[in-house]
Amino acid sequence: MQSSASTAGAPAAPVPRLAMHFASLEVQDNAARLGMWLFLTTEILLFAGLFICYGVYRFLFPEAWAASSRSLDLTLGTVNTVVLITSSLTAALAVHYAKTGKNKAVAVQIFLTLLMAIGFLVIKYFEYHHKFEIGTLPGRYYFYEGIQLPGAPMYFTVYFCATALHGLHVVIGMVVLAFAMVRALRKGDFGPNNYTMVELGSMYWHLVDLVWIFLFPLLYLV
C-alpha cells in the first residue's frame, strides 16, 4: 500500500490509497466489499445452525416452546430491538458522513452507535441475571418451578446459545467501530475515496442487527 505523507494537513481531500495489484480504486473497493459479503455469508450460516436447532426443538416441543417464550420479558426485548435498530441507523449515517469526508460527524455517529450497543448489553445483562435467579437455565441447571414441561430446558439452551453468540458479535462489532471512530478523530482522513473501513465495520454492525431482527420474534413472541 502506498503511503501518503501529505494527507495529515488536508483532511478535506484525502489521497486515495490504491494497492498496486488493483486496476483502480473502484475495483479495490468492490474487492473489499465482496470479501466482506463472503465473510458475512459465513456468519449467516454460523447463526443459521442455531436457528435450525430452534426450529427442530420447537417442532418437537411446541408447548414448552410457547410457555418458555412467554416467560421472557417482552418489554425489555422490544426496547432492545428498538435500541439495536436505531444503532444501525447511526452506523449507516456514519458511512454517509464518511463518504462526504465529515470526520467529526462520523465520530459522533459511531459514538452514538457504541452508546446504544452498551445499552443493549446492559439490558441483556439484566435479562440474564433474572434468568439465573429464577432458574430458567439450560439442561440440568434448570430449576424453574413455573414451567415443568419436557423441552423447556432445551428452549433455554437455544436461548442462551443464540443470545450469547449474538452478544459476542455485538462486542466484536463495537471493537471494530471503535477503531474507525478513533481513526476519524485522530487522522480524520475519511472521505469520498477512503471510507471502506467505516463501510465494512458498519456492514458487520448491520449483520448483528439483522440476526437480532430474526432472534427477537422467534424467542420473545413465537
Binding site: R33, L34, T41, T42, G49, G55, A92, E199, H206
Partner: peptide
C-alpha cells in the same frame, strides 16, 4: 438492501447473499 447497500453493490455480492440464504433454507 439499504443499510448494507446491497441494492447498489455489484451483482456478485447479491449472489453470495442469495446462496447463503439458499443453504440456510436447505439446512432448515
Amino acid at each position: 438492501l439499504f443499510f448494507m447497500h446491497l441494492s447498489e453493490h455489484q451483482g456478485l455480492n447479491r449472489l453470495f447473499f442469495a446462496v447463503s440464504l439458499l443453504f440456510v433454507l436447505l439446512m432448515l
